[in-house]
């Protein structure tokens, strides 16, 4: 798939299907413990889980940059199952000619304090002893954010060990998390803007108050820069440590102010289980804790800056962090 308009149409179609399939009611049912099976079957049926497979394997042949909007959309819709993770995992495995059991939901299980969606997946991709490994798995430990995540996994049968990998799965995990966060933050921004124009106090919509406008401007800045950083992590042929580090660091930092501002502007209603905002912000916070914090990635990025021996930071940005350098 190379044509831009084709990709745009594809993404549009995907968004329509997500809007129909992944309603807030469905998200809540799964969070409350319902079986993920029927939603997963529907998502699988859309065919988008295979979007990154080559056309010879009945995929759409999307590269990372083309798949990026699908991941954003999954974040925007708070898909409660590892759709984006599975799409990326299948592509990584297909590169090494490993075909995945039909219908398998796969989590990306890079080193992490928690694994999102581990409670609704039967397979995991890991970095283990320098190898890329596909295993059967089940959730272990707690679901800290009520998102069907888990603080660990029970590793079952090893299904494939197709390639060497030092931290390739960690990079993929963090890149996907950064893009899902950027997507969820986009939805949070939309919800906050619409709340600010609906909710009236002192006889005016909140959005007419300058103090609120200024906060919304900051919210938009943070969301846009997290989106651009995530897009850059999806610009190359594979996930590059420097780009991923910048993307996850930026997503995590942005997430703090985005969640604070969004909840502040919503007031008490935004904190309630009945209101949808928390479906998105709860996930954003879960991803903040997953696959490395801003300090973890910042330290790696700082070391990369020094190791590169670039004359200036501008050179480093251009050579290692620009879309065009991928």
């Amino acid at each position: 798939m190379s044509d831009d308009t084709d990709t745009a149409l594809l993404v549009e179609g995907f968004r329509r299907q997500l809007a129909a399939l992944v309603t807030p009611a469905v998200i809540r049912e799964i969070e409350d413990g319902a079986s993920p099976q029927s939603l997963w079957a529907s998502l699988d049926e859309t065919g988008f889980v295979d979007a990154m497979l080559p056309e010879s394997l009945d995929g759409a042949g999307l590269d990372l940059a083309q798949a990026f909007p699908l991941v954003l959309a999954a974040g925007e819709h708070a898909v409660p199952l590892p759709f984006a993770e599975t799409m990326v995992a299948r592509a990584m495995l297909a590169q090494h000619n490993v075909l995945v059991p039909a219908g398998a939901a796969i989590v990306l299980a890079g080193r992490s304090a928690l694994i999102p969606c581990a409670g609704v997946a039967g397979h995991a991709l890991l970095d283990r002893d320098g190898q890329l490994v596909l295993v059967a798995c089940s959730a272990a430990g707690s679901d800290l954010f009520r998102t069907r995540s888990a603080t660990g996994i029970h590793v079952g049968e090893t299904l494939a060990t197709p390639a060497a990998s030092d931290d390739g799965v960690l990079l993929a995990s963090a890149a996907v998390a950064a893009a899902l966060m950027a997507g969820a933050m986009t939805r949070v921004m939309e919800m906050t803007l619409s709340h600010a124009s609906d909710r009236q106090q002192f006889g005016r919509p909140l959005g007419k108050f300058q103090a609120i406008q200024q906060q919304l401007a900051v919210l938009a800045e943070q969301v846009l820069s997290a989106q651009v950083a995530a897009r850059t992590a999806f610009a190359g042929r594979g996930f590059d440590a420097t780009r991923v580090a910048a993307a996850k660091c930026r997503a995590n930092e942005a997430a703090t102010s985005v969640c604070n501002i969004a909840h502040a502007i919503h007031g008490a209603i935004g904190a309630t289980a009945e209101f949808d905002l928390q479906l998105y912000t709860r996930r954003i916070k879960q991803w903040q804790l997953a696959f490395g914090s801003e300090s973890y990635w910042a330290e790696r990025l700082g070391r990369a800056r020094i190791a590169a021996r670039a004359d200036t930071t501008a050179d480093f940005l251009r050579l290692h962090l620009a879309t065009g350098s991928a």
Binding site: L301, R303, T313
Partner: peptide, 19 residues
């Protein structure tokens, strides 16, 4: 290293925006 990395992470998307 973390301080340096944070600046790089914040600058990177902004340079992209400027381009």
């Amino acid at each position: 290293a973390g301080r340096l990395g944070r600046f790089v992470a914040r600058l990177a998307p902004l340079r992209e925006m400027s381009v």
